[in-house]
Protein backbone atom coordinates (compact mmCIF):
# COMPACT_ATOMS: atom_id res chain seq x y z
CA UNK A 1 0.00 0.00 0.00
CA UNK A 2 2.75 2.43 0.93
CA UNK A 3 4.64 1.28 -2.15
CA UNK A 4 1.65 2.05 -4.32
CA UNK A 5 1.41 5.48 -2.73
CA UNK A 6 5.10 6.12 -3.24
CA UNK A 7 4.83 5.08 -6.86
CA UNK A 8 1.86 7.32 -7.47
CA UNK A 9 3.82 10.16 -5.87
CA UNK A 10 6.83 9.63 -8.16
CA UNK A 11 4.52 9.50 -11.12
CA UNK A 12 2.69 12.65 -10.16
CA UNK A 13 5.81 14.56 -9.08
CA UNK A 14 6.91 15.90 -12.42
CA UNK A 15 3.52 16.72 -13.95
CA UNK A 16 2.64 18.53 -10.71
CA UNK A 17 5.92 20.41 -10.80
CA UNK A 18 5.23 21.48 -14.38
CA UNK A 19 1.77 22.63 -13.37
CA UNK A 20 3.15 24.62 -10.45
CA UNK A 21 5.80 26.25 -12.64
CA UNK A 22 3.19 27.06 -15.24
CA UNK A 23 0.97 28.65 -12.64
CA UNK A 24 3.84 30.60 -11.11
CA UNK A 25 5.20 31.89 -14.41
CA UNK A 26 1.82 32.99 -15.73
CA UNK A 27 0.47 34.53 -12.53
CA UNK A 28 0.81 38.03 -14.03
CA UNK A 29 -1.34 36.96 -16.96
CA UNK A 30 0.49 39.15 -19.49
CA UNK A 31 1.82 36.31 -21.67
CA UNK A 32 -0.05 36.07 -24.94
CA UNK A 33 0.47 32.40 -25.65
CA UNK A 34 0.62 31.01 -22.13
CA UNK A 35 -2.57 31.72 -20.21
CA UNK A 36 -2.65 30.82 -16.48
CA UNK A 37 -3.64 27.21 -15.89
CA UNK A 38 -6.82 28.21 -14.10
CA UNK A 39 -8.09 29.90 -17.23
CA UNK A 40 -7.26 26.86 -19.34
CA UNK A 41 -9.01 24.52 -16.92
CA UNK A 42 -12.07 26.72 -16.85
CA UNK A 43 -12.18 26.77 -20.61
CA UNK A 44 -11.56 23.03 -20.69
CA UNK A 45 -14.58 22.49 -18.43
CA UNK A 46 -16.74 24.85 -20.45
CA UNK A 47 -15.79 23.21 -23.74
CA UNK A 48 -15.40 19.55 -22.99
CA UNK A 49 -17.69 18.88 -20.02
CA UNK A 50 -19.71 18.32 -22.14
CA UNK A 51 -20.90 21.19 -24.28
CA UNK A 52 -18.83 20.53 -27.39
CA UNK A 53 -18.53 16.76 -27.01
CA UNK A 54 -21.26 15.91 -29.54
CA UNK A 55 -20.01 18.54 -31.96
CA UNK A 56 -16.26 17.83 -31.91
CA UNK A 57 -15.24 14.88 -29.75
CA UNK A 58 -17.72 12.34 -31.09
CA UNK A 59 -16.92 12.88 -34.79
CA UNK A 60 -13.18 12.56 -34.06
CA UNK A 61 -13.53 9.34 -32.11
CA UNK A 62 -16.07 7.80 -34.46
CA UNK A 63 -13.82 8.47 -37.45
CA UNK A 64 -10.75 7.18 -35.67
CA UNK A 65 -12.31 3.93 -34.51
CA UNK A 66 -14.07 3.35 -37.86
CA UNK A 67 -10.77 3.77 -39.66
CA UNK A 68 -9.05 1.55 -37.16
CA UNK A 69 -11.67 -1.17 -37.46
CA UNK A 70 -11.41 -1.04 -41.24
CA UNK A 71 -7.63 -1.27 -41.10
CA UNK A 72 -7.70 -4.28 -38.75
CA UNK A 73 -10.24 -6.18 -40.86
CA UNK A 74 -8.50 -5.44 -44.15
CA UNK A 75 -5.01 -5.83 -42.68
CA UNK A 76 -5.67 -9.24 -41.14
CA UNK A 77 -7.54 -10.60 -44.18
CA UNK A 78 -4.94 -9.37 -46.64
CA UNK A 79 -2.11 -10.35 -44.31
CA UNK A 80 -3.32 -13.96 -44.09
CA UNK A 81 -3.66 -14.13 -47.87
CA UNK A 82 -0.18 -12.72 -48.46
CA UNK A 83 1.35 -14.71 -45.64
CA UNK A 84 0.15 -18.00 -47.07
CA UNK A 85 1.32 -17.38 -50.62
CA UNK A 86 4.99 -16.89 -51.26
CA UNK A 87 4.45 -15.50 -54.75
CA UNK A 88 1.89 -12.94 -53.63
CA UNK A 89 4.18 -11.95 -50.78
CA UNK A 90 7.15 -11.41 -53.10
CA UNK A 91 5.12 -9.59 -55.73
CA UNK A 92 3.59 -7.10 -53.31
CA UNK A 93 6.53 -6.54 -50.96
CA UNK A 94 8.27 -3.56 -52.65
CA UNK A 95 4.95 -1.85 -53.38
CA UNK A 96 3.81 -2.28 -49.81
CA UNK A 97 7.13 -0.87 -48.64
CA UNK A 98 6.61 2.18 -50.82
CA UNK A 99 3.03 2.73 -49.66
CA UNK A 100 3.98 2.16 -46.03
CA UNK A 101 6.81 4.69 -46.29
CA UNK A 102 4.50 7.39 -47.58
CA UNK A 103 4.44 9.93 -44.76
CA UNK A 104 0.98 10.14 -43.18
CA UNK A 105 0.40 13.83 -44.03
CA UNK A 106 1.04 13.08 -47.71
CA UNK A 107 -1.70 10.46 -47.54
CA UNK A 108 -3.93 13.00 -45.82
CA UNK A 109 -3.61 15.67 -48.52
CA UNK A 110 -3.93 13.29 -51.44
CA UNK A 111 -7.00 11.66 -49.91
CA UNK A 112 -8.50 15.09 -49.26
CA UNK A 113 -8.16 15.80 -52.96
CA UNK A 114 -9.62 12.44 -53.95
CA UNK A 115 -12.41 12.11 -51.42
CA UNK A 116 -13.06 15.61 -50.17
CA UNK A 117 -13.05 16.88 -46.61
CA UNK A 118 -16.00 14.78 -45.42
CA UNK A 119 -15.92 11.97 -42.92
CA UNK A 120 -15.62 9.19 -45.52
CA UNK A 121 -12.32 10.49 -46.81
CA UNK A 122 -11.02 10.90 -43.27
CA UNK A 123 -11.98 7.37 -42.29
CA UNK A 124 -10.27 6.11 -45.43
CA UNK A 125 -7.04 7.99 -44.76
CA UNK A 126 -6.94 6.77 -41.18
CA UNK A 127 -7.52 3.21 -42.41
CA UNK A 128 -4.90 3.54 -45.16
CA UNK A 129 -2.12 4.73 -42.88
CA UNK A 130 -2.87 2.38 -40.01
CA UNK A 131 -3.41 -0.73 -42.13
CA UNK A 132 0.30 -1.36 -42.69
CA UNK A 133 1.40 -2.28 -39.17
CA UNK A 134 -1.49 -4.77 -38.94
CA UNK A 135 -0.87 -6.08 -42.44
CA UNK A 136 2.88 -6.54 -42.19
CA UNK A 137 2.73 -8.04 -38.71
CA UNK A 138 0.01 -10.45 -39.82
CA UNK A 139 2.15 -11.56 -42.76
CA UNK A 140 5.10 -12.14 -40.42
CA UNK A 141 2.94 -13.95 -37.88
CA UNK A 142 1.38 -16.20 -40.52
CA UNK A 143 4.71 -17.01 -42.14
CA UNK A 144 6.14 -17.93 -38.75
CA UNK A 145 3.33 -20.46 -38.12
CA UNK A 146 4.62 -23.42 -36.17
CA UNK A 147 5.50 -26.07 -38.82
CA UNK A 148 4.70 -28.90 -36.41
CA UNK A 149 1.18 -27.54 -35.92
CA UNK A 150 0.72 -27.28 -39.67
CA UNK A 151 1.85 -30.90 -40.00
CA UNK A 152 -0.68 -31.86 -37.35
CA UNK A 153 -3.36 -29.96 -39.27
CA UNK A 154 -2.39 -31.70 -42.50
CA UNK A 155 -2.36 -35.16 -40.94
CA UNK A 156 -5.84 -34.64 -39.50
CA UNK A 157 -6.98 -33.40 -42.90
CA UNK A 158 -8.30 -30.08 -41.64
CA UNK A 159 -9.91 -27.99 -44.34
CA UNK A 160 -8.22 -24.84 -45.54
CA UNK A 161 -10.64 -22.65 -43.65
CA UNK A 162 -10.13 -24.64 -40.46
CA UNK A 163 -6.38 -24.40 -40.90
CA UNK A 164 -6.62 -20.64 -41.10
CA UNK A 165 -9.05 -20.09 -38.25
CA UNK A 166 -7.79 -22.79 -35.85
CA UNK A 167 -4.04 -22.79 -36.40
CA UNK A 168 -2.68 -19.91 -38.43
CA UNK A 169 -4.68 -17.03 -36.97
CA UNK A 170 -4.37 -17.91 -33.28
CA UNK A 171 -0.65 -18.49 -33.78
CA UNK A 172 -0.25 -15.11 -35.44
CA UNK A 173 -2.36 -13.30 -32.86
CA UNK A 174 0.48 -12.05 -30.62
CA UNK A 175 2.24 -10.57 -33.62
CA UNK A 176 -1.00 -9.11 -34.97
CA UNK A 177 -1.72 -7.43 -31.67
CA UNK A 178 1.72 -5.79 -31.75
CA UNK A 179 0.73 -4.39 -35.13
CA UNK A 180 -2.63 -3.19 -33.86
CA UNK A 181 -0.94 -1.31 -31.09
CA UNK A 182 1.20 0.62 -33.55
CA UNK A 183 -1.86 1.16 -35.74
CA UNK A 184 -3.76 2.78 -32.89
CA UNK A 185 -1.01 5.33 -32.40
CA UNK A 186 -0.95 6.05 -36.13
CA UNK A 187 -4.74 6.30 -36.37
CA UNK A 188 -4.72 8.88 -33.60
CA UNK A 189 -2.08 10.98 -35.36
CA UNK A 190 -3.82 10.79 -38.74
CA UNK A 191 -7.10 11.72 -37.10
CA UNK A 192 -5.54 14.93 -35.78
CA UNK A 193 -3.67 15.80 -38.98
CA UNK A 194 -6.73 15.17 -41.12
CA UNK A 195 -8.68 17.61 -38.98
CA UNK A 196 -5.92 20.22 -39.09
CA UNK A 197 -6.39 20.34 -42.83
CA UNK A 198 -10.01 20.53 -43.55
CA UNK A 199 -13.56 19.96 -42.49
CA UNK A 200 -15.69 21.67 -39.92
CA UNK A 201 -15.62 19.46 -36.86
CA UNK A 202 -13.32 17.36 -34.69
CA UNK A 203 -10.99 18.20 -31.81
CA UNK A 204 -8.07 18.71 -34.20
CA UNK A 205 -10.08 21.15 -36.27
CA UNK A 206 -11.19 22.98 -33.13
CA UNK A 207 -7.64 23.31 -31.84
CA UNK A 208 -6.15 24.56 -35.08
CA UNK A 209 -9.09 26.86 -35.73
CA UNK A 210 -8.69 28.37 -32.25
CA UNK A 211 -4.97 28.83 -32.89
CA UNK A 212 -5.46 30.65 -36.15
CA UNK A 213 -8.18 32.79 -34.55
CA UNK A 214 -5.86 33.56 -31.59
CA UNK A 215 -8.38 32.04 -29.18
CA UNK A 216 -5.46 30.90 -27.07
CA UNK A 217 -7.28 29.41 -24.04
CA UNK A 218 -9.49 27.45 -26.46
CA UNK A 219 -6.41 26.17 -28.26
CA UNK A 220 -4.91 25.09 -24.95
CA UNK A 221 -8.09 23.32 -23.92
CA UNK A 222 -8.02 21.46 -27.26
CA UNK A 223 -4.36 20.47 -26.83
CA UNK A 224 -5.04 19.30 -23.31
CA UNK A 225 -7.95 17.16 -24.47
CA UNK A 226 -5.92 15.66 -27.32
CA UNK A 227 -3.09 14.84 -24.93
CA UNK A 228 -5.47 13.16 -22.50
CA UNK A 229 -7.15 11.28 -25.34
CA UNK A 230 -3.76 10.07 -26.56
CA UNK A 231 -2.94 8.72 -23.12
CA UNK A 232 -6.40 7.18 -22.69
CA UNK A 233 -6.29 5.42 -26.07
CA UNK A 234 -2.83 4.06 -25.30
CA UNK A 235 -3.92 2.71 -21.92
CA UNK A 236 -7.10 1.23 -23.37
CA UNK A 237 -5.23 -0.69 -26.05
CA UNK A 238 -2.60 -1.92 -23.61
CA UNK A 239 -5.29 -3.28 -21.30
CA UNK A 240 -7.24 -4.88 -24.16
CA UNK A 241 -4.06 -6.45 -25.48
CA UNK A 242 -3.14 -7.91 -22.11
CA UNK A 243 -6.61 -9.44 -21.82
CA UNK A 244 -6.63 -10.89 -25.32
CA UNK A 245 -3.19 -12.40 -24.98
CA UNK A 246 -3.48 -13.91 -21.55
CA UNK A 247 -2.98 -17.43 -22.94
CA UNK A 248 0.15 -16.26 -24.70
CA UNK A 249 1.73 -14.78 -21.59
CA UNK A 250 0.86 -17.99 -19.75
CA UNK A 251 2.42 -20.18 -22.42
CA UNK A 252 5.57 -18.10 -22.47
CA UNK A 253 5.88 -18.19 -18.69
CA UNK A 254 5.39 -21.96 -18.79
CA UNK A 255 8.00 -22.34 -21.52
CA UNK A 256 10.51 -20.35 -19.49
CA UNK A 257 10.21 -22.24 -16.23
Amino acid sequence: MTRLLARTATYAALPLAVLAAWWYLTRGGESLYFPPPGQVFTRFRENWLFALVPEHVMPSLVRMFSGLLLSVVVGVALGVALGMSDLAHRATKPWLTLLRSTPGPVVVVTFLVLFGTGSVGKVLMIAFVSVFPVLLNTVDGVRAAEPVLLDVAASYRLSRRERVTRIVLPGALPQISVGVRTSVALAFIVMIVSEYFGGSDGVGYFTRDSASGFAIPDMWSGMLLLGLLGIAVNVLVAVAQRRALRWYAGARAAAKS
Binding site: A13, A185, A211, M223, G230
Partner: peptide
Protein backbone atom coordinates in the same frame (compact mmCIF):
# COMPACT_ATOMS: atom_id res chain seq x y z
CA UNK B 1 6.73 8.79 -15.48
CA UNK B 2 7.50 11.81 -17.65
CA UNK B 3 8.24 9.56 -20.61
CA UNK B 4 5.12 7.51 -20.02
CA UNK B 5 3.07 10.68 -19.82
CA UNK B 6 4.37 12.43 -22.91
CA UNK B 7 5.12 9.48 -25.20
CA UNK B 8 1.52 8.73 -26.23
CA UNK B 9 0.90 12.39 -27.09
CA UNK B 10 1.95 12.95 -30.70
CA UNK B 11 3.97 16.11 -31.18
CA UNK B 12 1.42 17.16 -33.79
CA UNK B 13 -0.88 17.94 -30.87
CA UNK B 14 1.22 20.90 -29.82
CA UNK B 15 2.17 21.92 -33.36
CA UNK B 16 -0.22 24.91 -33.36
CA UNK B 17 1.31 26.24 -30.15
CA UNK B 18 4.92 25.75 -31.27
CA UNK B 19 4.27 27.52 -34.55
CA UNK B 20 2.50 30.39 -32.74
CA UNK B 21 5.33 30.81 -30.25
Amino acid sequence: PVVEFFRPIPSIVYLPLVILV
